[in-house]
Amino acid sequence: MDLGLADAQGEPVVPERLIFADDGRIPNSRLATLAFRSRGVNPVLDREAIAARFETLFSANDWRPSWRGGVYDYHHYHSIAHEAFGVLSGWGKLRLGGEQGEDVELRTGDALVLPAGTGHCHLEASDDFLLLAAYPEDQRELDLLRADPAEHDAAVARIARVTRPTHDPLGGETARWWS
């Protein structure tokens, strides 16, 4: 409740679902990118308290918190893991889906789930923009691929083997969003 990501019954908020086509350089995914919008973070929480809430929430749903930082300012994707972000502070605008994709603005308390293969790139952000990244427990390794047609087909094959976690990082069943 402190992150504004649950409804009155304690269920995760319904995410925006975004699907991006394969552009021949970035495979993207037939699974939807999930943007969970915070309804408002408890104002008494500072950045460290928000981070602790996200770490607890992600861990409880078998998504391993990994690092804090921003997003690279070039188009890239991961072919062997799904990735989740929790916004700890500030705001940032990302382009998702490759060069012809969609710009998405994230704010403190929002969470984003990028299925394996989904392109993402930093466009602009506030000075205090900070993310916590997490990955499903069974996806311990992470690759970093740029938009490169020469890598495309091998990446598509790897993406097809990435398992789907039972739950999204907020506790909803991924089958509900990724059917």
Rank of each mutant, 00 (worst) to 15 (best):
E105W: 13
V44N: 04
L5C: 09
E151L: 09
E55N: 07
R47P: 10
A175G: 00
G69S: 04
H82T: 12
T56F: 11
R107W: 09
G4K: 05
F58N: 02
Y72V: 14
E137W: 12
H120E: 15
G171P: 03
P43S: 06
S59F: 00
W63L: 03
W178L: 01
L34E: 05
F129D: 00
G97D: 05
R161Q: 12
R164K: 13
G10E: 04
D148C: 03
W178I: 06
W67N: 06
R64S: 13
H82R: 02
L130Y: 02
H122L: 10
G24C: 11
E83P: 01
E83K: 03
T166L: 04
G98H: 06
A35Y: 11
P169N: 05
I19E: 11
L96C: 13
Q100P: 10
P15C: 10
A116P: 08
R39P: 00
N61C: 05
T163I: 10
P136A: 05
A51R: 08
T56M: 08
A111C: 08
K93V: 15
D2Q: 14
R140K: 14
L132K: 10
S66V: 15
L3T: 14
T33I: 02
H75D: 09
P165Q: 04
S38C: 06
A32P: 01
L34A: 03
D138E: 08
R68P: 10
T166F: 02
C121W: 12
G4T: 12
R164H: 12
S29C: 05
A32C: 03
